[in-house]
Amino acid sequence: MCDHCGCSEPEHHQHEHVHPHEHEEPGKTLEVRRPVLEMNARLAERNRGYFKGRGLYAINLLSSPGSGKTSLIERTLMDRGANLKMAVVVGDLQTENDANRIRRRGAPAVQITTGEACHLDAHMVAHALEKLELDGIRLLFIENVGNLVCPASFDLGENTRVVLHSVTEGEDKPLKYPVIFHDAELVVINKIDLAAAVGFDRDTALANIRRVAPSARILELSAKTGEGTREWYEFLEKAAQRS
């Protein structure tokens, strides 16, 4: 059969001739069945293997912009940096600001500036890891681009996902962005020192998180004052032991 038009003549690929039949056939459907993110999935698996091989526990830290991801990492380094060896990969559209903040606290950090991309992907993380001094490091924070939508779709090879939600964002973010909350092992409510000032309705917020992330653990803390961070550190210490 001719590959071009599906007629029964084996050798008539010279299409200059006049055909006895119409050439307006509907065309062929080719089965593909491939995930759009197959390449990312492969690279994420590689990252996962890399983390495992190095005994690293990787946390994909997700939130809206300004929820306090970098502040929480800074606070963590300040309080626990001496006993828990941590490194940070941080993603932003522009600037090295966050990586600089983290380096000032004594941890190795690599900034990924994504330019226009609103999320990190496994490929970007793989390259960032090449630039990171990881000897002796047990815990790797991957601070994603501040965004509650796009990062949800991209596996980075991380061991777990932590979503940060600050009291200044109100109570209904989990309902508006259920995908990212659903996949979280831990939801951290940050800036609790501001809860009263902004009229944060704690019960509603907790109920909303539980609706979309029924099995997630919830911690409430303030990266600024340090209130409530003890349980966060316990979570991290256990995580480091799992690596």
């Binding site: 080719l30 089965e31 069945r33 995930p35 759009v36 993110l37 099995s215």
Partner: peptide, 17 residues
């Protein structure tokens, strides 16, 4: 509450014409 999502996460190319 269920954590077991069986369908709804697909992002696939099925076929081309």
């Amino acid at each position: 509450p269920s954590m077991d999502i069986r369908k709804g996460r697909e992002l696939e190319i099925i076929s081309i014409e």
